[in-house]
Design a protein around this nucleic acid. Structure first.
Length: 125
DNA sequence: GCCCTGACTGCTA
DNA sequence: TTAGCAGCCAGGG
């Protein structure tokens, strides 16, 4: 497949598809984009959102694979991300872990990703 | 093209 | 169970 968008934009488009009250992890998004080892780059892409863009992208629904919030951003602390998710109905235990079995997003099939990247627009486009 | 950075991961101790 | 560490990869300088 061939896309004109850069990796960051692809990450944002995928993130937009995560339903309210569901979460996924960095590596899962990287895998959907055909770059299984690029989990760190996914985190970087979300960190690169401007404050205005961050209001349009549900970045809080992407957490690390262990089920915890690992955000490191000047604008937001892990506790902020967790409370945003709790406001959507995601439950965390006392140690800050959530259960992918209950709140995990099933993700997109390769053909769905293909269609999305070819057709979807980012909110500010 | 080389080098550094980062909201990650999986393995080892 | 937690901590450290090396590999990971796209962008930017």
């Amino acid at each position: 497949m061939r896309h004109n968008r850069n990796f960051f934009e692809k990450v944002w488009l995928i993130t937009l598809q995560i339903p309210r009250g569901r979460v996924t992890w960095y590596g899962a998004i990287a895998e959907m984009l055909g770059a299984p080892g690029a989990a760190r780059t996914v985190g970087w892409a979300l960190g690169a959102l401007t404050p205005a863009q961050a209001r349009a992208i549900p970045w809080q629904r992407v957490i690390n694979k262990s089920g915890r919030c690992s955000i490191r951003n000047a604008e937001h602390a892990p506790a902020d991300q967790q409370s945003r998710l709790e406001a959507e109905g995601v439950i965390f235990d006392a140690r800050g872990y959530t259960d992918f079995g209950r709140f995990g997003w099933s993700g997109l099939d390769p053909d769905e990703v293909d269609f999305l990247l070819a057709r979807a627009r980012l909110p500010w486009e």
